[in-house]
């Protein structure tokens, strides 16, 4: 499922993003690397402030600069660095080749324009379609994301749709130009559980149908488990662990991932006291020296306070490297074995 044939669709290399604030420089992203291939779902997991959304915004080129700046790094889309290419070339990729779905569908849609008009605009602006064709295309798209009675509802306004339906419209909009990559930033967080399932299913299905790459940004370990192929766990602007989805849940190789998994109550388990990661996520203005997780880590030693562990390949007991698994912990072996 995760075999990479040839060039990856998107290759983020050593990306750094900083925000200049009154109080200093906040290091939101500190050397992130990840790749997504066509037909693959990468879940980027992290809490607020982990840099997961900032990374996505950097890829999309929708960061406000200033206050943001990208001091270092490459974002290769089909081998081309989007950070160095011209503005026009970049704009062509954004929206047409890479599309984004946001958490809040209501505020992402223009309230005074009908849904059909907004969907059709994609075709009018990018494909030069006529009004009539654009509307027909809009109906077709709404059908595809399974909005019932699409032909009747195409002239409705965003507020006339429920939350789940609005998120479907956002998905339709992202799909309109048949992009190669979709970035979904917490697409179901604002939705109810029962609707969440519908939307996630739809997204996964369409992804398979169009053979797109999908980056799913979320804080919800449950959502990720259902659809992702591989996971990157972020903490304080760094990727602390990457793994194929099954491996990660079976045996995390980073104490932060382990802590996260242990700290969520599970529907199928009624435990006593929940495990809680002590402390708080770090202040991005002053990320602690050494491993950023060390002040909260039960395993922290002196070395963790001195040197920041690089993301290292995880090797199985038989000496074979585990495909796609890496951990940024000095003690990943011990963490892995802890199970």
């Amino acid at each position: 499922m995760t075999t990479i044939v040839g060039m990856p669709l998107l290759d983020v290399r050593d990306l750094h993003v900083e925000f200049v604030t009154r109080d200093g420089v906040a290091k939101a992203v500190n050397g992130v690397n990840y790749r997504v291939s066509a037909g693959e779902t990468l879940a980027v997991l992290g809490e607020s402030g982990s840099g997961k959304s900032v990374t996505a915004q950097a890829i999309m080129g929708i960061l406000d600069m200033p206050p943001a700046r990208i001091p270092k790094g490459q974002i290769l889309f089909k081998g081309e660095d989007m950070l160095t290419m011209g503005k026009d070339a970049r704009r062509k990729i954004r929206g047409q080749k890479i599309a984004m779905i946001f958490q809040d569908a209501l505020s992402s849609l223009n309230p005074v324009l009908s849904v059909g008009y907004q969907l059709g605009e994609m075709f009018r602006a990018h494909r030069g379609a006529s009004h009539k064709d654009a509307k027909a295309k809009a109906v077709e798209l709404m059908d595809r994301v399974r909005i019932p009675a699409a032909a009747q509802r195409v002239n409705d306004y965003p507020h006339q749709f429920s939350g789940g339906m609005r998120q479907r419209i956002m998905i339709a909009m992202a799909l309109a130009l048949e992009p190669d990559l979709i970035i979904a930033d917490e697409p179901t967080t604002a939705l109810d559980v029962t609707v969440q399932a519908q939307v996630m299913d739809l997204l996964a299905e369409l992804q398979a149908e169009y053979h797109m790459g999908l980056i799913l940004i979320t804080h919800d370990l449950g959502v990720v488990a259902d659809v992702a192929d591989k996971i990157a766990v972020m903490y304080a602007g760094q990727i602390v662990e990457t793994a194929p989805v099954h491996d990660l849940y079976a045996a995390p190789a980073h104490p932060y991932t382990r802590g996260l998994l242990d700290s969520i109550p599970r529907l199928d388990q009624k435990g006593q006291e929940l495990f809680a990661i002590k402390g708080l996520p770090p202040n991005l203005l002053r990320i602690p020296p050494g491993c950023p997780f060390n002040p909260r880590c039960p395993r922290a030693q002196d070395i963790c306070r001195r040197t920041d562990p690089p993301l290292t390949q995880v090797v199985a007991d038989d000496g074979e490297p585990v495909l796609g698994r890496a951990s940024a912990c000095h003690f990943w072996k011990e963490t892995l074995r802890d199970d």
Partner: peptide, 24 residues
């Protein structure tokens, strides 16, 4: 160094730091 900013997805900036937690 008050930690107010207007950054996207960096609510953690609002969080107080966590020094001294290792001993707690």
């Amino acid at each position: 160094n008050p930690t107010h900013t207007r950054l996207p997805d960096t609510h953690a900036l609002d969080y107080a730091g966590n020094q001294g937690m290792a001993v707690e």
